[in-house]
Amino acid sequence: MLDFVQQLVSGVALGCVYGLIALGFVLVYKATEVVNFAQGDLMMLGGFFAFTFIGMMGLNYWLGFAGAVAAMALFGMVAERVVVRPILGYPQFSIIMVTIGLGYFLRSVAGMIWGTDDLKIDTPFSQGVLRMGSLVLAYDKLSVIAATMILCTLLWLFFNKTMLGTAMRASSENMLAAYYMGIPVKRVVSVVWAISAAVATCAGVLLAPITFIHSNVGLVLGLKAFPAAVLGGFGSIPGAVVGGVLIGVIESMAGFYLPEGGRTSRPTSCCSPCCS
């Protein structure tokens, strides 16, 4: 039983990270019908930014975190403006290729700048555990879960209670009507990319103590987060988080209870009925 709870918590923590990346997929897809396959690499880049601010420049953890999120939000906007917008209106396939290309580019550039070693960020949650009786839960995992819940609440409030958030939902429902309303749709799309890059960065920084940062981390996680988005219906923000958590838990349980090799195949096979 104890094992089960511990596996559950670490599964949920990992799943939250998948969910956050999946959230980025969903946000961008809903706003522009673009599947951004570079989403995982935005997360990776966010992790490196945070490493630069915290590990190299020696900033305070929270300051560095905020700095990385802000820098990546800006980066997301620029990426949309420079890479994606010129190709909008072309076939879906071209857009997918462009985002895959962007991912490759980011991975290579990150490797050139920060090297190919695993990097580590010292966080306030890196050490220490929460003991409840004989149950031992690591702070780093709990921090991921708490941060995901806070982020989801903030996003929910933003999308439901602010004019800009409502305008984003409106543009994703009916872009033409949004133009008729005087909503600056292009600027709204830029903000969506900024938000999805910022959320990805949060995922990257939160994940740093668990998996470390290296230039390929985004590819692996992105490929796991994509089925999470599909599992959640690919248009639903809560669905993405639930899908992510589900995949995280299945992965963690499979790793513990099933024979070696079961862990990596599980998430994909649990998704295949939805994909077909």
Partner: peptide, 18 residues
Amino acid sequence: EVFPFLSVRENLMMGAYP
């Protein structure tokens, strides 16, 4: 061309966006 998943009130508020 209304926004189908937005409430009536939210639709009207979008009209006042500018």
